[in-house]
Amino acid sequence: MTPFAPGRTVLYRHIARDRVVGVRPCRVISDDDRGLLLWLPRGSAVAVELAADGRGVRDMPFTEWVTGERRLHEATWQGPAIVKFLPRDAHHSVWFLRDDRDAFVAWYVNLEEPLARWDDGPAAGVDVIDQDLDIVAAPDRSWRWKDEDEFAERLALPEQYWVPDEAAVWAEGYRAIELIEAGKFPFDGTWTDFEPDPSWLVPQALPPGWDRPAAAERSS
């Protein structure tokens, strides 16, 4: 597929068993041989799957979540802005987290299975499967696992969970940890001081087509 043009809005979407469960519109910073670099601004319109009573997947046991009624809920991104990097041929993305003063505070390795890029014209995006296990790395490159308990809880329900290969997820995490400990790209200071184009407007609504079916073809 043709690279996404810098400045274009693309949708970073989480998919679970062919359902769209999360949508974040991001601006393209760059799209090249290294991968796709995105900007999610504070205050952006987003969508997230919630239970009928307004609770999220982390607010209840997974056994309750998978048996209850759920729907996509449009909301606003309340956290600080995030730079998201999706490396080529990797099963993770790297998020550059900021504090309320917009200063870099940590790398967040989001372990995820890439599905596909898609481009419908008015709307375009990337679909991934969030694998729940994550890594948080401080600026000094000390690191810790995150959400191991959630990962284990969900793996105990293989007929309901969207992650089929536990070992592959852990292995991908350890590959990222090797880069973190060695201070290799993208954990070498690149993009930690990124500033967005001041002309980029914060999306106040999701574009038509944001809820299109999950992309069927997996990324190469």
Rank of each mutant, 00 (worst) to 15 (best):
D33S: 13
R34H: 13
W118E: 11
L40F: 10
D140Q: 09
A215R: 14
A156I: 04
Y108M: 06
I177G: 07
R70N: 04
L86K: 07
A81N: 01
R144L: 05
V128M: 09
E69S: 12
R17L: 11
G189W: 11
E172V: 06
D99M: 09
R101I: 00
W170L: 14
A156C: 02
A214T: 09
S142G: 06
L206T: 05
E150L: 04
V94S: 04
R70H: 10
D53I: 10
E69K: 10
D31Q: 04
K84I: 14
D99P: 09
D59G: 15
R70M: 08
W170G: 00
R8G: 11
Y161F: 15
E166G: 09
S30T: 14
E153I: 00
E166A: 15
A116Q: 14
D102I: 02
S93P: 00
R34A: 15
D193V: 08
R71D: 03
W191N: 00
V163S: 04
A167E: 14
P87M: 13
N110P: 08
V163D: 03
W107Q: 08
S142L: 02
A124G: 06
V83D: 02
V10Q: 06
V136I: 15
A205V: 14
R88L: 05
E49H: 03
W77S: 12
D119W: 02
G209M: 03
K146V: 05
D100R: 15
D165K: 03
P139F: 01
G125L: 08
W210Q: 06
P196H: 04
E166W: 00
E148V: 08
A116T: 12
L157T: 06
D31N: 05
T190L: 01
L111S: 06
P198N: 10
V105D: 10
H73N: 03
P196K: 02
D197G: 13
